[in-house]
């Protein structure tokens, strides 16, 4: 299945396993609503000077597996985000190639992990002046497992490139059920790269502070959780969509047993 994105804003529903191709030739925001038991292959190209934003909104309660490849051309910018609130088993394998100078790749994830979740996201810098930013935010419910492999690779000769990663995960289980593996492979000197990671249970002092204002423990944890997930709502530059995602996050968090 092939899509050529021609509108500034498009919303696409995906409900069957298939191979999909998508090409951005003009600036656009695309929301992909996916549902059902899926095994999908994506290949996306962002043409020169084009700014593309893709938000994956998961509605599935079944197993979802994706293999995704993104090509970002000269001075183009790709922002893609996963909004995963369904507590279903998920496996994303994502490769972003910043192929020409000035290419920018941003990957954001917001996840309520309630099953087995795995993200393997690799961003490769293949040209000078390329930038990437990866932000993984989420919470892990009791009994769930989450593996994150976040790779930023800057090849030799890709000077003045920047690769940054942030991972913030809140776990509601005392057991160690999260593995975060940040990998920065840097073959060039004239670059910037960083990884920030915080992983742990809710901070008792923060919970006490919130409880002292009248929220019970569950409400306090829910509010903290919403704080981890909400940044994803700002990805798409559209107030209606933001509100929809915000509502969805609040609804889902309220349904979770904290």
């Amino acid at each position: 299945m092939e899509y050529i994105i021609k509108e500034a804003f498009e919303r696409i529903a995906i409900t069957s396993s298939d191979t999909y191709q998508m090409t951005f030739t003009q600036n656009a925001n695309v929301i992909i609503d996916y549902d059902g038991s899926l095994d999908i292959h994506w290949e996306v190209t962002v043409a020169q000077d084009v700014k593309a934003t893709i938000l994956f909104l998961n509605h599935s309660t079944d197993t979802v597996t994706t293999n995704e490849i993104y090509h970002v051309k000269k001075d183009a910018s790709l922002t893609m985000a996963y909004c995963e609130l369904m507590l279903n088993p998920i496996q994303h394998t994502t490769k972003v190639y910043l192929e020409e100078t000035g290419a920018v790749g941003n990957v954001h994830t917001a996840t309520v992990c309630g099953d087995k979740v795995s993200y393997d996201v690799a961003i490769q810098h293949l040209a000078p002046y390329t930038q990437s930013n990866m932000e993984n935010y989420g919470i892990v419910m009791k009994g769930a497992h989450w593996d994150v492999v976040a790779t930023g690779q800057i090849k030799r000769g890709c000077y003045q490139s920047k690769a940054h990663q942030t991972t913030r995960i809140l776990t509601l289980d005392e057991k160690q059920n999260v593995k975060v593996l940040p990998i920065l492979l840097i073959d060039e000197n004239d670059v910037e790269a960083s990884h920030a990671c915080s992983l742990g249970q809710p901070d008792e002092n923060q919970l006490y502070y919130m409880q002292s204002r009248g929220m019970n423990r569950t409400q306090a944890i829910q509010l903290l959780t919403i704080g981890y997930l909400l940044p994803i709502a700002t990805i798409i530059d559209d107030e209606t969509v933001r509100e929809e995602i915000r509502k969805e996050i609040e609804k889902k968090v309220q349904l979770c047993k904290m």
Binding site: N205, Q206, M210, M215, L223, L224, G227
Partner: peptide, 15 residues
């Protein structure tokens, strides 16, 4: 306490 991620207004509304 500092609570990054939670806005002042969301916090107060919840309280």
């Amino acid at each position: 306490q500092e609570i990054p991620g939670v806005t002042n207004s969301d916090f107060l509304k919840a309280a």
